[in-house]
Simulated scan of single mutants.
Amino acid sequence: MPSIQVTDLKPGVKIAAPVHTPLGSTLFHKGKVVLPRDLDILRAFLIQSIEVEAVDTKNSSGLKEASKNTNQPQAGTHELEKQQVMEPFYTEYERMLTLIKGSFQSILASELPVLDLRVQLEALISQLKHYNILTFSPRNLNEYDYIYHNAILSSLTSYLIAQWTGMAQKDWMQVAFAGLLHDIGNARVDPKVLHSPLPLNAKEIEEIRMHTTYGYQMLRNSAAINEGVRLSALQHHEKVDGTGYPLRLTGDKMHSYSRIVAVADIFHAMTLTKRYRKAQSPYIVLEQLKAESFGKLDPGIVDTFIQKVTQFHNGARVRLNDERIGEIIFSERDHPTRPLISVQGQIINLILERSIYIKEIL
Rank of each mutant, 00 (worst) to 15 (best):
Q5R: 14
V6F: 07
L9D: 06
K10W: 07
K10E: 13
K14P: 02
V19H: 05
S25E: 15
L27M: 11
F28T: 03
H29S: 15
V34N: 03
D38Q: 03
D40F: 12
L46I: 10
I50G: 03
I50V: 13
E51S: 12
E51W: 02
T57F: 15
S60Q: 15
G62A: 13
K68I: 12
N69E: 14
T70R: 15
Q72R: 15
Q72N: 12
P73T: 07
A75Q: 12
F89K: 06
F89N: 05
E92P: 01
I100A: 00
G102W: 01
A109S: 14
V114N: 06
V114D: 04
D116K: 15
L117E: 05
A123V: 08
L124K: 03
N132K: 08
S137R: 15
P138Q: 09
L141T: 08
Y146S: 09
I147H: 14
S155H: 03
V175I: 06
A176W: 05
L180A: 07
D183C: 09
I184Q: 04
R188Q: 15
R188P: 01
R188S: 12
D190N: 15
K192F: 09
H195S: 08
S196D: 11
I208R: 03
T213F: 10
T213Y: 08
T213R: 11
Y214P: 04
G215T: 04
M218S: 07
R220S: 15
A223E: 14
E227D: 14
G228N: 11
Q235T: 00
D241C: 07
G242D: 07
G242M: 09
T243G: 11
G244Y: 06
Y245L: 13
H255W: 01
V261R: 00
A262L: 00
V263H: 00
M270A: 13
T271E: 04
T271S: 02
K278L: 14
L289E: 00
L289G: 03
L289Q: 00
P299Q: 06
T304H: 04
T304C: 11
V309A: 05
T310F: 01
Q311H: 09
N314D: 12
A316N: 08
V318P: 01
R324Y: 08
S331W: 01
Q346V: 14
R354D: 13
I358H: 02
I358E: 01
I361F: 08
